[in-house]
Amino acid sequence: MGLLDKLMGNNEPAKKADFSDVQSGSSSTAPAPAQTSSMGASAGGTYTVVSGDSLSKIAKHHYGDANKWHAIYEANRDKIKNPDLIHPGQVLTLPDIS
């Protein structure tokens, strides 16, 4: 292999792909496991906005309560200027609500 590289004039090591800026997330129709706290809310992690989303819809999906939208808004004030306007692809932090 080394000899082949020399013959081919290829002495540079293979450049690895850079995945350091990969963003990820998840959502589920299944509820989260029961928490030890008395409230039903949970979440935590991140969520990537998709077309048709609203903060209240995301809150309903992740916390079971659409009124928790303001908690998502507060946790993402740096990304959301107007709570009525979120964009597909935005990665929102879902705060732990206990």
Binding site: D21, S24, S26, S28, T29, A30, T48
Partner: peptide, 11 residues
Amino acid sequence: AATEFHISKPS
């Protein structure tokens, strides 16, 4: 149930 995972890469 259905659970989705997603990845994106701005660059």
